[in-house]
Design a protein around this nucleic acid. Structure first.
Length: 554
RNA sequence: GGUGGGUUCGUAUAACGGUUAGUACUCGAGAUUUUCAUUCUCGCAAUAGGAGUUCGAUUCUCCUACCCACUACCA
């Protein structure tokens, strides 16, 4: 009898969700959807000390942005469900709200001899660890040491009874067997065996805050929520024997979920796993969304950096998985069909920012000019540009689309389609004596923003001298007159051949004239085709810019 | 230190035990273009090391090295 596929993503709200966490959630989601099952979100907030306000909301918003929508655990408004209903039968989905259910399971284990009460204080245990460390050893709370510690195994029954009643700092610990070979199977890593003798007696429940630790809460909830597969990070592999033992202790072996442990995301360079610091150091986000911590420290996000969620998800899916052929572009729905745990890579995947950028470029190219125009408008407004018609913006987008990886690039690539170049001298005009100051009476495109401060002007010409040469000025003037009097349509199709014909018929050098013209027109030494620029900015602006350039650069 | 996991070009990865070890990103060269970008073509570049099993090993086994995780009343 096949049981229904039910998987969960169980984050701890201790901060923003790392992109590795998003990948874990994604693989869970893909697996669930492929098997026609349920994807559940459960909040594991059993550590009250590490709780970070806003983290839970961030996690859900991030997954939502990625298109990873839970079936259960979070409602349509993005709130973690607190009361059971037909759609959310296992509510609440926040472990802090489930605290009342765990104690009896912990006590069941004690009663059946699988666990015991421990009365050692944190200070006592810290002292033990320090003591052991001093002689080059590691203190482990296990079969070797537990009889020498203060617990219900070592203390007389009446003393145990007294401590249980009179103190509130005791815990329940799992009594890890001294010598049992735990045989485990991992969907990605295959068969693994560990001897329980090397493991320690993990705390399962804490009297102090009446909350379980991860291990107990996790096993109990996975059981109660009828989880069929547990897909989680590699950092949990060492706890798998404990979890197997717990299922055995509870007598839930027949419904125990199958496990799959995902490898970690590694730094692009150097050693170790990907951390927030790497992003800061190497200049890329490690979080899906921007995050500002309590100290006001900002971490950038893929969303705010201009990545499309489809690109981010596609890139993430391929960090540790591939379909087995050469295809690399998959929508999330296509991933659902193609995904398989069998093809998940065992080794850690090094994150590559260049590839992430490439993915975004590919997705940008797949989008329609219309859609991109919608996205471009707020970007332009952020740069103080408005008042252009949609028709104009659409033409710009169509023209610069091939040169962009991000919507932001539409602006960066050709700001001169929206503003007039002003400050050539900033870029090293030396020849021809002192540069004349800007003409305050110069007519400018009323739609355009004028940059008075050269430092903020977005033009980047580096080779002004190279193109703006005496011998090129005269031909340029001729071209200006030609355009002034051009009677054909102001379109690339019409202007381009006309310009070419005019220039070659006069025996001028195409390259020299065009580059010189571009400099005057855009303030930049490279960029879009001249005919395209003229057709967009129009005759008046063209004439105005050339006149200004002649005055400033002559 | 202990336990577990891992190791193919710089990166992500492909390869029933049999291939000139493939693909993508990056990088380099050339072509195209009025410049830049795009596009196209070509190129650089890898099985960690050592044993063993086998006619034959990237693939299976063992050893070594290196990397990672865990070793909390954190998840």
């Amino acid at each position: 009898m096949e049981r229904r596929t039910r998987v969960r993503f169980a984050p701890s709200p201790t901060g923003p969700l790392h992109m590795g966490g998003v990948r874990t959630a994604l693989y869970n989601y893909l697996y669930a959807k492929q098997h026609g099952g349920d994807f559940i979100i459960r909040i594991e907030d059993t550590d009250s000390h590490r709780f970070v306000p806003g983290a839970e909301k961030y996690i859900i918003e991030a997954l939502n942005w990625c298109g990873i929508i839970p079936d259960e655990g979070v409602d349509a408004d993005g709130n973690v469900v607190e009361t059971p209903s037909e759609k959310h039968p296992h509510a609440p989905y926040r472990q802090s709200e489930r605290r009342s259910i765990y104690r009896k399971y912990a006590e069941q284990l004690v009663n059946e001899g699988w666990a015991y009460y421990a009365f050692d204080s944190s200070e006592e245990l810290d002292a033990k660890r320090a003591e052991a460390e001093a002689v080059g050893e590691t203190f482990i709370y296990n079969h070797r040491t537990r009889l020498g510690l203060r617990n219900s195994l070592s203390l007389p029954a009446d003393e145990v009874k007294r401590l249980l009643e009179e103190t509130t700092t005791w815990t329940v610990r799992f009594k890890m067997p001294e010598n049992t070979v735990v045989k485990m199977d991992d969907l990605i890593r295959g068969h693994i065996e560990v001897n329980s003798g090397t493991l320690d007696d993990k705390v399962l429940w804490k009297r102090a805050d009446e909350l379980p630790t991860y291990h107990l809460a996790n096993i109990v909830d996975d059981h109660l929520m009828e989880i069929s597969e547990v897909i989680r990070g590699e950092e949990w592999l060492p706890s798998l024997p404990l979890h197997y033992m717990l299922y055995k202790a509870f007598g839930w072996e027949d419904t125990m979920p199958r496990f799959a442990h995902l490898s970690l995301l590694l730094k692009p360079d150097g050693k170790g796993k990907l951390s927030k610091r790497d992003g800061d150091r190497l200049g890329f986000p490690v979080f899906p969304l921007r995050w500002v911590n309590a100290e006001g420290e900002v971490s950038r996000g893929y969303r705010e950096d201009g990545y499309f969620p489809e690109a981010f998800v596609n890139m993430l899916a391929f960090l540790g998985w591939n379909p087995g052929d050469d295809r690399e572009l998959f929508t999330i729905d296509e991933l659902v069909d193609a995904f398989s745990l069998e093809r998940v890579i065992k080794s850690g995947a090094r994150f590559n920012a260049e590839k992430a950028k490439w993915y975004n470029k590919e997705y940008l190219r797949m989008k329609s000019v219309d859609e991109l125009t919608d996205l471009f408008i707020p970007v332009l407004e952020a740069h103080g540009i408005k008042g252009f018609t949609r028709d104009y913006l659409t033409k710009v987008v169509a023209l610069v689309k091939e040169r962009a990886s991000f919507v932001e690039d539409f602006w960066t690539v050709a700001p001169y389609l929206f503003i007039s170049p002003e400050q050539y001298e900033k870029f090293g005009v030396k020849a021809g004596g002192p540069v004349k100051p800007a003409d305050p009476n110069r007519p400018v495109d009323p739609r355009a923003k004028v940059y008075d401060d050269a430092a903020t002007a977005p033009f980047l010409a580096k080779d002004v001298d190279k193109f703006w040469k005496e011998e090129n000025i005269a031909p340029v003037k001729e071209v200006v007159e030609f355009v002034k009097g051009y009677s054909g349509e102001f379109s690339v199709e019409s202007l381009e051949p006309a310009l070419e014909e005019f220039i070659s018929s006069r025996g001028m050098a195409m390259g020299k004239v065009m580059n010189c013209l571009r400099l005057a027109l855009t303030g930049a030494s490279s960029g879009l085709g001249i005919a395209a620029i003229i057709s967009l900015i129009g005759r008046d602006e063209f004439v105005s810019r050339l006149g200004f350039a002649m005055q400033r650069l002559a």
